[in-house]
Nucleic acid binder design. Structure first.
Lengths: 353, 353
DNA sequence: CACTCACGTGGATACGTTTTCAAGCATCTC
DNA sequence: GAGATGCTTGAAAACGTATCCACGTGAGTG
């Protein structure tokens, strides 16, 4: 276990000052002669600059943080892979945390990242704007992915919020009352995705369409309400908390309380999974008895029988773009990137029976 | 964007020296009086010790590294969740990397971690012992999870290697020629798991059983060979490279070249997915035409129809245990933890037609 | 009372890097 | 030829912490 060479060792061995070594290795100016010698010595000593010294000096840790709700959810796995791909190509480390969709855990993780002086963060937010205020106040460069945090409690108004979210999707500023956080984001075009799904089901003759949502699906719910048109049958909009159990309970409860529904839109792959399971348990055939569209395309969607019709959103791309955004934090950044979704018709939707 | 308070600020505000503050906050000795005052001042200033300074001083980054092949693979998602759960309860950061099962990328990531002075690492190794030598030589505390790296090329002897692996599973030292790496590990009892699967299929009357493997499945293959008994029909043992495409190609090729096989054991969930897909594409009915057992239990195994019979391995536990091991790196650590597997019979296996 | 011992404390140092600053030197311009 | 200009260079100062060491004080012991 040999100890690593420091910049000082290189400087001595090359007969120059440490400043020169640092300059050469950071791409600063130096005469070709010394540059060559420093490079040679560094290679020969197998010198690798210590991130520790650099970080302390610049008072910031390189790389970026990444906060997702659950790595067991394939969609977030895809998103994480996208982030890691971008980080790898930049040679930057990624410190990751799993929030379990719990604002409290999220807060703790933010605190931990602050302690580490990680000043760039990509997050699928669980908490509301209030949870995130400390991070941006501390000067973190934050990029939200997949969803936006809810507005702070005092100004949370279901009506207005829904309108805001929809307007945001259109790239409009929602209102004179400023948005709580000014943080760029990379999200899918949930409104178009949900609308396409609902229209597709409508075209098949479905009238009683349910929505199965989870945490962070506010924009999708709003889009669903809009696509279905008023008045919305509130019993047909149900939520799970994010765990598989709760998703199953929600799906099962929905099917039992409303046997008259003929189609359901699942707001995420965990909910879609729950819907398939619950339907089977209740002897509902897909798509004969009930049609199903799932948000998120995941490899196993094709394995179900029938294969699941889905609204695909580019998880990997979302991660990659978010990482790009957080890295190029200099210059003007777009306030929000909206990626397209795609309806992939497989076999889980049929005409209304 | 206010700047953070440093230990110096706290010391001045409390009228003590920085050394005292450091001691109080690190649990060192101090008089109750000063301790109380320091704590109060620290809280009032909202002081959080900077990990940067501490890291540089102790010449090591806290927390741990985590290297997995692919976060899109649900099993590794589970494993990562286990690691994160343990790390969170210890308040330690985790820097993650995805290797794509590529030794070269793995090497680069190890280099990056070294540069960050991360000295504790949990890895699902892609490269062989040679790839890992630099890490342990640099003094890293490494724990392997899910699999062990292959022995270095020069001494790689298929026969001997297989024997070694099997002996290792029994907890025996393989040979007088020492093992290349002395690194603790947390793995599933692949031998028992595969043996159970093969015996189960045998009991259903199957004789031509194939194995569909991927990278890192050496121990599983060896166990398969042992369970099937010599002579092994080599055409029935095929491999993918880790990507979904290659897994599909391997499965499809297997089914086409050997229509006489009646059962297949997939060495991992990606391979299982590929097998289901390929079988369907070729109009092979499961389990009527071909029985299927998949290694790894994943939520969607239950969604297939028929639901997949699987050998479950505790991915989350493996991650948690590995993290525990790497954290309690003091004291004597067990050389290897072997976790039990469980055959979960669902509907993808039937009697030989 | 002198001496030791234990303990609480603060000053100083080191960790490895980047960056500022001024100095040295060669070249160019008037 | 004198002054100005540009480039290369190294010494030194941070960054925020943990820890070594020496100092003082109080209690306990002979």
């Amino acid at each position: 276990m040999e100890k690593r060479a420091t910049i000082k060792d290189v400087a001595e061995a090359a007969g120059v000052g440490v400043a020169t070594v640092s300059r050469v290795l950071s791409g600063g100016s130096a005469s070709p002669r010394t540059r060559e010698r420093v490079l040679a010595v560094a290679a020969q000593l197998d010198y690798r600059p210590s991130a520790l010294g650099r970080n302390l000096r610049q008072r910031r840790t390189g790389g970026m943080g990444l906060l997702v709700p659950d790595l067991t959810d394939t969609f977030y796995g895809q998103l994480a892979e996208g982030v890691l791909a971008c980080a790898r190509s930049a040679g930057e480390p990624v410190v990751i945390g799993s929030t379990g969709d719990d604002p409290e855990q999220e807060s703790e993780l933010i605190g931990m990242l602050l302690e580490q002086s990680v000043d760039r963060l990509i997050a699928v937010p669980a908490g509301d704007a209030e949870t995130w205020a400390p991070a941006v106040r501390a000067g973190m460069t934050v990029v939200f992915a997949d969803r936006l945090p809810a507005p702070p409690a005092e100004e949370r108004d279901p009506q207005a919020a829904a309108v805001d979210d929809l307007m945001l999707l259109d790239g409009l500023s929602p209102a004179p009352r400023a948005r709580p956080l000014d943080v760029p984001s990379v999200v899918a075009d949930d409104r178009a995705g949900i609308r396409t799904a609902v229209r597709y089901l409508r075209g098949l003759g479905h009238r009683r369409i349910a929505f199965l949502g989870g945490p962070g699906h506010d924009r999708r719910v709003a889009a669903f309400r809009e696509a279905v048109g008023a008045p919305v049958d509130e019993e047909l909009v149900v939520f799970g908390t994010g765990s598989r159990d709760s998703a199953y309970a929600a799906a099962s409860g929905l099917f039992q309380s409303r046997p008259d529904l003929s189609a359901v839109v699942a707001g995420g792959n965990v909910l879609g999974e729950a819907a398939v399971l619950a339907a089977r348990e209740l002897d509902l055939r897909v798509p004969r008895d009930v049609s199903l569209i799932m948000y998120d395309d995941v490899p196993w969607a094709e394995l179900c029988s029938p294969p699941l019709t889905v609204v695909a959103q580019p998880g990997r791309d979302m991660g990659y773009r978010a990482a790009e955004l957080v890295l190029r934090s200099g210059g003007r950044r777009p306030r929000g990137v909206v990626l397209p979704t795609e309806l992939i018709v497989r076999g889980s939707c049929g005409p209304r029976r």
